[in-house]
Design a protein around this nucleic acid. Structure first.
Lengths: 208, 208
DNA sequence: GACCGTATAAAACGATCGTTTAAATCACGG
DNA sequence: CCGTGATTTAAACGATCGTTTTATACGGTC
């Protein structure tokens, strides 16, 4: 009977997730990963076939939870602006607790264009959830008319960008300390205000 | 008299800029860069001391133009929402024409935390220009009260994120073709609408 | 034409990369 | 307690990394 899930295998994924995010695919060496996992150099080839195999496994495991989280928000009942607020809150908090996620997503988009089709497939549950949230918000009048994808992009830009900028920012330059729950609330509140305003009717040239 | 600017030196910066952006610091090898530049392998060490030296030079050259562009927008006279619109237009178009810029900025932020202090220093003209635009917009009533940096982050998130997502997106999924000027106008118009709404008064729980 | 600092060239350096090999160890049913 | 497949280990593989070395070609000055 094959045991299918040894301890080293999980340790390799955990270490790979962290090191791929910190240093990128090329920067994270097999020896660094196996060293951090307390495993042998050959264990990557044995369990995943190659470094690339481990990378794909890491991507899959790292992307799933956020997609599920967004699906939950999309399925939850909320009135008017409540669902948008819940979405931004959930995405930002999730990305903050799992910085590997955003880093690996950006890394793939920047330097691994060959994996973009697979990435889009893995992100499918997330994008459908987002589109559902926006289209329903348009039906209820919270969001103005227009291609839903544009609003999805504008929405996601906020938590992703804020997470990347605040994660390792030096102290003193930020208006609130994101390492505390109260500090993060400042950013979430701002993102919600900004997004709700942006989603509503246009303010183009004339006031209101 | 030293010639100071040989042809190979410029070719190395050009090739390095492209390859560092495409493949990241670790992924872009010295041999690939010198090969693309039509130069010898030893030329990087000769002209820049090391691969790291070339990377720093590329960062400096790639960051300057956007900072100057934003300073121009900040200095230009524009009434009400015009300056915000000009800012988003300029940033998105500049990033679109120079994708290396955003890619390298993100790369440094993700995988080269050791360079963040130098990056912040190089970005100083850009951030001061952005802060000036926002604070003056607050004074004129276009932007509601609040820490200017939060609005700067929300503003920049839009063109950066849109550029990263639309640059290599497969055909058919996007609502407009960003490779044409007319298509990019769709994205810029949306970003302007979204941003102006987000910058104005809050739409929190009650309608309008 | 000899001289000299600058620049390019080819070749080699040690180090480290991902991967492979082959032996050792483990878990366990017969 | 032996056999057998699964796992781990140490060692080595060829390839490629960034860098150094050494020699050669170039452009002015005296």
């Amino acid at each position: 009977m094959p045991s299918e899930e040894a301890d080293t295998r999980g340790a390799l994924v955990t270490a790979g997730r962290r090191l791929f995010a910190e240093r990128g695919y090329e920067g994270a060496t097999v020896r660094a990963i196996t060293g951090a996992a307390g495993a042998n150099v050959a264990s990557v080839a044995y369990h995943f076939g190659s470094k690339e195999g481990l990378y794909l496994q890491v991507i899959m495991e790292v992307l799933s939870p956020l997609g599920e989280r967004i699906q939950e928000v999309a399925a939850a009942e909320a009135s008017g602006t409540g669902r948008i607020e819940a979405l931004l809150q959930a995405v930002f908090e999730h990305l903050w607790d799992n910085p590997d996620q955003a880093q690996i997503m950006v890394e793939v988009r920047l330097h691994r264009a060959d994996l973009l089709p697979q990435l889009a497939e893995m992100l499918a549950p997330m994008t459908t959830g987002l589109m559902q949230i926006v289209t329903e918000a348009q039906a209820s009048g919270v969001v103005r008319e227009g291609p839903p994808l544009l609003f999805v992009m504008s929405l996601m830009a906020q938590p992703v960008y804020f997470m990347l900028l605040t994660r390792r920012a030096p102290e003193g330059v930020l208006p609130a300390n994101p390492h505390t729950a109260e500090g993060r609330k400042v950013y979430v509140d701002h993102m919600v205000d900004f997004a709700l305003g942006g989603l509503a009717g246009t303010h183009r040239t004339e006031g209101r």
